[in-house]
Nucleic acid binder design. Structure first.
Lengths: 227, 227
DNA sequence: CATCTCAACAAAATCGATTTTTTTACTAAA
DNA sequence: TTTAGTAAAAAAATCGATTTTGTTGAGATG
């Protein structure tokens, strides 16, 4: 059932954009670090123009900062910003969840169940971290997909990426993971029964729990810049 | 204590970004239009690299669409998208307004009053449209500035720009303008008295009114693309 | 000993030209 | 008349080199 046999190859600037985006979210660069463009060029094996275009897009997206005549740097991380991101994410996702429950049809239910299944499968291989991460992202996407607001989904996606930058600093925690997974299952049940109120409360808890875990790991090492 | 007497000049790519952004919001390009890069290069008198970097940033911001190997195009405009933008804008701005009222100090009040004054002054010269537009933007910014959420303000700004793309299609309407201006004044009063409930309702009306005006002008000529 | 100047250096930004891909225009076959 | 096929033209994407700007450190100056 899959699509596009050979599909259309993306241009270099899009590929490097995706790669760099993932590397930034996964924390492969230190917060506050200044990116050496020619080093990136060598490391990712791309030309200067596609690389600069990707850096510009990432800066507009909020995963990089562009300083006037002195290149690009990874944004510093602050506890307050994590609180801002998590709080707003909770509000926007609850908003989207309500609309998704109201507008969701059986196709949406199917996609949610499919995403839940993929997430459970990914759970069976704890060593494949990135596969679980992707399945997790897709599950949350599927849950809100039917909300009907293109822009709300766009902002939620952006906040999710920002949130992950912080969350990924924390070491894996099996106990927490287990609670989160149980919540995923409960969210599906509440979605099928369209229990908006309970689902909102649960999603809020879900995000709040991730938030507190990330927060605990971010408290001291918050690398700030000197003046 | 103030800064930079002559300030630091922006680089070419930032200048062309701002210019193009304004031209896109002001509707100087047709919706759905494909941008001819070399024509832009000649028109704006910039080189290829800064221009392409600006186009990439605008695409990440949502004011352009990048199609795989065939350049950039101005996004098509749809009535449904206007409804989405306006509805979400109302929700996010009401959210920010509540937080701004709770966190706003006297410095915030001063800035709101200052912005209101500039807006009234701009009103005295109806021929200087762009000055009024800027004062109007700044007024709404000042009103929400103290909400404490960097990301919420960022999204509101982005939605405001998107909304303006539609709103600016409508011809000036003195009657509507008068109502909107009265609402600005009332918003300031409610801000000073911290009447959250009334202010939320008023801001919602304010956006709803702009929305319906833009909607009326967007109904038929919504230029769509063929297949 | 601290501070300032300025040349040498390193990095970012930009330009002009090349390569790759898409679109167009034309021709021939069904 | 329509449908492929193909070569020329146009446009987008990329590359390599140049220009501009910021940084560093040695030596001069107070």
């Amino acid at each position: 059932m899959t699509v596009s046999p050979s599909a259309s190859r993306d241009m270099a600037s899009s590929r490097i954009f995706e790669t760099l985006k993932q590397d930034l979210i996964r924390g492969r660069f230190a917060a506050g670090e200044k990116l050496a463009i020619s080093a990136l060029k060598d490391h990712y094996q791309v030309g200067l123009s596609p690389l600069r275009e990707a850096l510009n897009r990432l800066a507009a997206y909020g995963l990089l900062e562009q300083v006037n005549q002195r290149g690009f740097r990874v944004p510093a991380m602050h506890l307050e910003e994590l609180d801002d991101i998590a709080g707003l994410r909770a509000q926007l996702e609850c908003m989207a969840l309500t609309q998704a429950f109201q507008a969701g049809d059986s196709e949406w239910e199917s996609q949610v169940l499919a995403a839940q299944h993929r997430l459970r499968r990914a759970d069976e291989h704890p060593e494949r971290v990135e596969e679980w991460e992707q399945a997790h992202l897709r599950f949350h996407r599927a849950l809100l997909a039917s909300c009907g607001s293109h822009w709300l989904l766009r902002f939620i996606e952006q906040l999710h990426d920002q949130f992950d930058r912080y969350r990924r600093l924390a070491p894996p925690n099996p106990g927490v993971r287990e609670v989160l997974d149980r919540q995923h299952g409960e969210l599906v049940e509440l979605a099928l029964s369209r229990d908006i109120r309970a689902a909102r409360a649960l999603l809020d808890d879900h995000i709040r729990l991730s938030h507190s875990v990330a927060r605990g790991c971010c408290e001291s090492p918050a690398s700030d810049d000197a003046t």
